[in-house]
Design a protein around this nucleic acid. Sequence first.
DNA 1: GTCTATACTCCGATAGAC
DNA 2: GTCTATCGGAGTATAGAC
Lengths: 196, 196
Amino acid sequence: MSSSSSGSAPQAKRGNTRQRIQDVALELFAEQGYEKTSLREIAERLDVTKAALYYHFKTKEDIIISVFEDSTRPIDELIEWAQGQPRTLETKREVLRRYSEAMASGAQLYRFMQENQATMRELSIGETVKKRLFTLVELLRTEEGPLADQVRCVSALFTLHAGMMFLQHVEGDPEETRQAALEVATDLITRAHQAQ
Amino acid sequence: MSSSSSGSAPQAKRGNTRQRIQDVALELFAEQGYEKTSLREIAERLDVTKAALYYHFKTKEDIIISVFEDSTRPIDELIEWAQGQPRTLETKREVLRRYSEAMASGAQLYRFMQENQATMRELSIGETVKKRLFTLVELLRTEEGPLADQVRCVSALFTLHAGMMFLQHVEGDPEETRQAALEVATDLITRAHQAQ
DNA sequence: GTCTATACTCCGATAGAC
DNA sequence: GTCTATCGGAGTATAGAC
């Protein structure tokens, strides 16, 4: 998240057009869905023409892919870090903590991914997301434990998503809700870990 | 779920066209997403023309709405039943059990709703789904409990979804996985209930 | 680095014949 | 109940001027 997202008065600054396209596109994609957002709409918001978009990105798909790649590096780093750690409960807790933080700071993108799964699945990045989710579950999971404990690990991740996406619309302080979701998720993996 | 879903050989039977449109449409919507599925495609699968669809349904949106309304009655009945029950732990367990069953027998529709949230939000049924979800959470929830316990109730529902959608692709027996998810979900609301 | 102008495809939807 | 034919519009994308 960098700039110009909320204002409807795009600066005439030059040279940062690519970044501005990414910002506006993500905002609209998250708001209305990927397919329902047209390039014309993105161009209008930036006060440029459709053709200008094609100077910076080869296709519509390229825009979302570039946003995705720029914004999900924290998760890749998290996975890389975790794979070099001992598979202790504390490591797992740290994974959830950092995942929750990454979601909070990239909220728009995560909302987009959550609400446009059908689209994601057909985009080239869909496979990447799926693999990463599996890897994360792998890192949280107890090997050979009962099925219910494996479900707990998946559920822990989904709880973080649920906390971000669903509860946000109901309760008061988003940060408080995030912490509550993190608590529940941590609780879930703790039980799964101890049942080992 | 009625007929002709899996076969690629549509019967030339007449009089059940409306039903066949619903079946094929849901299948394609769930597979490819709502926006990416065109009426032409649906018509081709049924070996009729686009115009024929318009005899049975006023718009594309009407198709998915009709499927939705025909298939989600079990949930409405569940809510109605639960609202007439005392808010005991056993009632809550029964809610989860029946919700899980409803999801299993309407898997395609639930997959569609899960993966096309952005679309759902702009469809007239989106609001209905959201309200129903809130009502269900309300029924599971402990009044005035700590935030974490409220998250547990939401998380319980999401766990059932996670079990259906995510784990299905990994593990062996779907029914076994469903039971495991139900177990974890029940566990979550039990903790929330007892903390009351 | 951005714009004008344009091409082409496909979509959802309608009118009217059979 | 299904067809042919067609509409208006939007979408992605390109060529070429400035």
